[in-house]
Computed example of a mutant assay.
Amino acid sequence: MISDPMNIVPVILSGGSGTRLWPVSRPERPKQLLPLTADETMLQLTAVRTQGFASASVGRPILVSNAAHADIIDEQLKQSGIDEYSVILEPIGRNTAPAIALAALEAQPADALLVMPSDHVIDDLPAFHDAIARALPLVAKGWLVTFGITPNGPETGYGYIQMGETCGDGVHEVARFVEKPDVANAQRMLAEGNHAWNAGIFLFRADAYLTAMEKHQPDMLANVQTAMAGAKRDGAHIFPGAMAFHACPSDSVDYAIMERETQVACVPVSMGWSDVGSWDSLHAVSTRCTDENAVRGDALLLGARNCLVHSDGPRVTLVDVDDLIVVVSQGEIMILKRGESQKVRKVTEAIKAIAAATSTN
């Protein structure tokens, strides 16, 4: 599609703590490092997602991660047969805009950075690869491209992208980014038909991203540059300078860059995507057995329907109940109604409050 094939560098963002999937996901081993939807972990599935891409060369991936997870990441990438990679280990989380800037400075200026969260599901890889190929001509011209998920319902848990004029093969200029809507606005956008969910997956040249950051977030860029200039290196591990990175402003790539730029495009795609952001969404993407139940671990279900059971040891037995989520992990047991899994945040907050109260006594 373009005369000079670009080099795509996968940039995998793996700094999240995954608290919405407590008690399985914990800060020391968050959801991206767990096998939640397959035998492989979410990180492993992401790392091999660009294999077989034919429209451009694909270089060694760059991961940006919490320093505490370095050994686990090494182990999992090697299990997946990935021997050449770099891991930039953040001394502190500063959200996605600085994280991507770290990777952009590590890459070559003309590299096309394929930015992917490490904890998403994409079932239809050919559709994803086709969307990447459609984006490349604009990326080569310096555009910042995002991938919008074709919505299948009025979801209120995602931001939306309003698409404008066509600017390529199945590619649209971004008219605006929309905050997470209420139900009425989500239904309206779905009816209008020119909106997509914001999946947080991007493709742009490293130099185009850094130019945009210099224009819109010069302080952020200066701190990231100082941190990378003073980085220590140990094999595949890169340790940015802690003092400079601590001083870096914290912001998402959407707010800091994408919403401020003019040459921003969206490729709408339907590719079996999920952010696995809750136990309910895990149930939705899991293989179902009898009566729409999804089971991982040892379970006995008698007359149970539409339930999710996840156990790391003890057998869970459900008798004549519907729409339950039951999680047994690391000595903790959690039971809640299906459709209410966003309330897990209340659980983690309550546990923190109990721990704080105990420590002061």
Rank of each mutant, 00 (worst) to 15 (best):
I2G: 02
I2E: 02
S3M: 03
P5T: 06
L13H: 07
L13K: 04
G15R: 05
G16C: 08
S17W: 15
R20E: 12
P23D: 11
K31F: 11
Q32D: 06
P35Q: 14
E40K: 15
L45W: 03
T46Y: 02
A47Y: 06
V48R: 11
G52N: 02
F53C: 01
S55N: 01
A56V: 12
G59A: 03
R60Q: 04
S65K: 13
N66V: 09
N66I: 14
I72L: 07
E75S: 14
L77P: 09
K78P: 05
Q79R: 15
G81E: 04
V87I: 14
V87H: 04
L89I: 15
L89S: 14
E90A: 15
T96G: 06
A101P: 12
A104L: 06
A107G: 01
D111I: 00
P117F: 08
V121R: 05
D123M: 07
D123K: 08
D123W: 04
A127I: 04
F128V: 00
D130K: 00
I132Q: 03
R134H: 03
A135G: 04
A135P: 09
V139I: 08
V139C: 00
A140I: 04
T146I: 04
I149Y: 00
I149F: 00
Y160S: 01
Q162V: 15
E165H: 13
G170W: 04
E173V: 07
V174E: 00
F177W: 09
A186W: 01
Q187M: 02
M189W: 11
E192K: 03
H195P: 03
W197Q: 12
N198K: 01
G200Q: 09
L203A: 08
A208R: 14
Y209G: 02
A212V: 01
M213K: 05
K215Y: 15
P218G: 09
D219Q: 11
V224K: 11
T226H: 08
G230I: 10
A231N: 13
K232N: 13
D234Q: 10
H237Q: 13
I238F: 05
I238T: 15
P240S: 02
A247L: 13
A247P: 14
S250A: 15
Y255H: 10
I257A: 11
E259C: 06
R260G: 02
Q263R: 14
C266T: 05
V267R: 00
S270N: 03
S270L: 05
M271I: 07
G272R: 01
D275R: 01
W279I: 06
D280M: 10
H283M: 09
C289L: 09
E292Y: 13
A299H: 09
L300E: 12
L300M: 13
G303R: 04
R305Q: 15
N306M: 05
L308D: 01
D312F: 00
P314W: 01
V316E: 10
D320W: 04
V326H: 09
V326W: 08
V328C: 08
S329V: 03
S341E: 02
V347E: 11
A350T: 14
A353H: 13
A356I: 04
T360M: 14
N361I: 12
